[in-house]
Design a protein around this nucleic acid. Structure first.
Length: 637
RNA sequence: GCCGAUAUAGCUCAGUAGGUAGAGCAUCUCACUUGUAAUGAGAAUGUCCUCCGUUCGAUUCGGGGUAUCGGCUCCA
């Protein structure tokens, strides 16, 4: 008699040893059809596994995230099988699940995207055949024999702990080394697509073999696949590299790879972002400072950057002295701090800086505004007493929340701990990491931990925002630094009349202004809210005799600091409206004879609604209100 | 930086099996003077990314370089 406990604490008894599938069927056939795998006492198992003794069993279904991961892992096997069928000499390496699908790294001659079609066709055959996945446990020597022709698998097998069970999974003729679990049969893959192909190194090591990485995605439901593909299409339409250039916000030039040029309209948005930043930071007790772009090598040696960050720094020799363009603002900030003596009463000292930094990123890593070589950080350094860490980190998190919500962006938090390459003592790291943890616990939002992902000078909290398409981007970061204050011998006078070492926070909220700008372009799909829109109002005189009147209104609106343009071209109104809509100008104001006579305006919003007969006041009041409050509302009238 | 792909007018793209190129949009001119998503006609526009090579001749073929794209990697 085997007693099985389910998650709802109900117990079911079986006379003989059942498999997971048998248990699922005993619940209902329909339920069993949607089962992917199970957990026996929290351990993931295949449905074909037998339940040998009394235990707790829960099922992973097609609705669970874990179920989707299992499906995708199985999809990777199916893809590998298809590849081996078409390219018998290919050598498989590893095929994991990633955030957005799965991939398999394969040692084979480079193929192109067109070749994916044939692989997909083969995969379809395997899926239609609904072949079962079966698990087999083998000894290490058996495994070594089976994979004797594949050096990658041999390497993996040899690295396995002797206590670890070595399992193989077979579907049809295809066998792969794999921990599992897998879906019961390939027919569960209802929708799949191979997305792209790229190079990757074995073990991400440039000195090792160059492999072909084939990416794919799969779902239990064809509809979900289509939704996913639609999302990709939508993301493509919003691509800031296209959209921002089309909207005349910025451009990229061969002469300065990784260094964007901002156009007049782009700078309007940029300044609106900065105005808002200054407004919030002033309120939060920050002062604004500015440090030079280029500083002597000695400073970078002292700060530790020369040792830890040199390969990313631009350098130059001036008057026989070596200088570096700053890749970070902090060392300059250290010099600022040292210009006077501080009392504990001065702390916390919050010094912001919109600092232009240059980092020599790998050429292949550059991408639009998202990955550049020159960018502005909305940096700030907070100097404080150790007792203030929790409060100050918490203040930063709250400030970040206020700012992100202004753009309608949600976020989540990640804590990164000490990396291999780092400076500072064990004790400093522990103290700093605990300080961040304490603040996070107080903030109360759940957070993830990234072991070893901290900056070389301290642990950090990264803030990842989520855009309108559900994509996440790391923007903000709060980094505790117990090392720089020591290297620069920063002090303050305590209540006890003794010198003490302040602790320092580096933090950014937009992160990189360039990058944040790009994210906003995609987040809003080019349709900036009124307060950010480069052109807030466009005036369309319906004939050229009315152009002067339109110019007059423009001057009036500009006196209120409303960003305004007149389209006086000799085009039809239809055409001008269309162009304004395509440029996502929030407010389109038509000026005809009627309006001139009655001194009113007709306003069209981006949703196509038209309101007529507004006096200048009727118009400017709500507009100014929305700009001042920086609302996201599209409904202004 | 590495692997693969791409590079033609301001933009999107076609084309030339090697004989110096073209369409739409944008621009300019003229006519039209327009009432809420494209008025019409005409004109102008290119080191066909760059350098070297093969060739009588290269935008086209080959090689080097640069930039961009997809990844690896790195990170804000």
């Amino acid at each position: 008699m085997i007693n099985i406990t389910f998650p709802d604490n109900s117990i079911k008894s079986f006379n003989q040893i059942p498999t997971g599938m048998e248990i699922a069927v005993s619940i209902s056939e329909g339920f069993a059809r949607n089962c992917v795998a199970m957990k026996i006492n929290d351990q993931l198992k295949d449905l074909s596994a037998q339940v040998q003794s009394d235990c707790a069993v829960s099922f992973i279904t097609t609705k669970d995230e874990e179920g989707l991961d299992i499906l995708r892992h199985s999809s990777a096997h199916v893809m590998a099988e298809a590849v081996l069928h078409l390219y018998p000499d290919a050598k498989l390496t590893i095929g994991p699940v990633v955030e957005d699908g799965f991939y398999y790294d394969i040692d084979m001659a480079p193929i192109s995207e067109e070749d994916l079609v044939a692989i997909e066709a083969r995969m379809k055959g395997i899926i239609d055949a609904k072949t079962e996945f079966t698990r087999k446990v083998v000894s290490k020597s058996q495994a070594l024999e089976i994979f004797k022709d594949n050096p990658f698998k041999l390497e993996l097998i040899n690295e396995l702990d002797d206590s670890q069970e070595i399992s193989l999974y077979q579907n049809g003729q295809f066998i792969d080394l794999c921990r599992g679990p897998h879906i019961p049969q390939t027919g569960m893959i209802k929708g799949f697509k191979l997305l792209k192909i790229s190079g990757a190194y074995w073990r991400a090591d440039q000195s090792r073999e160059q492999l072909q990485r084939l990416y794919g995605i799969s779902f239990f439901d064809k509809k979900q696949l289509n939704q996913y593909l639609t999302l990709i299409e939508e993301a493509k339409k919003r691509d800031h590299r296209k959209l921002g250039v089309k909207l005349d916000l910025y451009s990229f030039h061969d002469e300065a790879p990784g260094m964007p040029f901002f156009h007049a309209k782009g700078i309007d948005v940029w300044n609106a972002l900065l105005d808002y930043w200054r407004y919030e930071h002033k309120k939060a007790g920050y002062v604004e400072t500015k440090t030079p772009l280029m500083l002597n090598k000695k400073l970078w040696v002292q700060s530790g950057h020369w040792e830890n960050y040199r390969e990313n720094m631009y350098t130059s020799v001036i008057d026989d002295e070596e200088y570096a363009i700053k890749p970070m603002n902090c060392p300059g900030g250290m010099l600022l701090y040292k210009t006077k003596a501080y009392s504990y009463r001065d702390l916390p000292l919050k010094a912001g800086e919109i600092g232009l930094v240059h980092r020599h990123e790998l050429s292949g890593a550059l991408s639009g505004l998202f990955r550049v070589r020159a960018f502005h950080q909305d940096d700030a350094h907070i100097f404080m007493m150790p007792s203030q860490i929790g409060e100050q980190v918490l203040n930063v998190l709250n400030l970040a929340k206020r700012i992100y919500s202004r753009f309608g962006l949600d976020f989540h938090l990640e804590l990164s701990t000490r990396p291999k390459k780092s400076i500072g003592s064990d004790q400093q790291w522990e103290e700093a990491t605990n300080g961040l943890k304490a603040a996070l616990d107080q903030y109360g939002q759940q957070y993830f931990i990234n072991e070893g992902d901290g900056a070389f000078y301290g642990p950090k909290i990264d803030i990842h925002i989520k855009d309108a398409l559900g994509r996440t981007w790391q923007c903000g970061t709060v980094q505790l630094d117990m090392s720089l204050p020591e290297r620069f011998d920063l002090t303050y006078k305590g209540q006890d009349n003794e010198k003490h070492r302040p602790i320092m926070i580096h933090r950014v909220i937009y992160g990189s202004l360039e990058r944040f700008f790009g994210i906003l372009v995609e987040h809003f799909a080019g349709k900036f809210p009124l307060w950010l829109a480069p052109v807030q109002v466009i005036l369309l005189p319906i004939n050229q005799d009315l152009a002067d009147h339109a110019e007059q209104i423009k001057s009036q609106l500009e006196s209120f600091n409303i960003r305004c343009e007149v389209d006086a071209r000799s085009e039809t109104l239809k055409k001008k409206v269309r162009d304004a809509q395509l440029n996502y100008i929030p407010l389109i104001v038509t000026i005809g004879d009627k309006e001139k006579e009655t001194q009113t305006l007709s306003v069209r919003t981006l949703d196509g609604n038209v309101k007529m007969g507004l006096t200048i006041d009727d118009f400017t009041q709500p507009v100014l209100h929305h700009i001042k409050e920086r609302t996201l509302d599209e409904a202004i009238f």
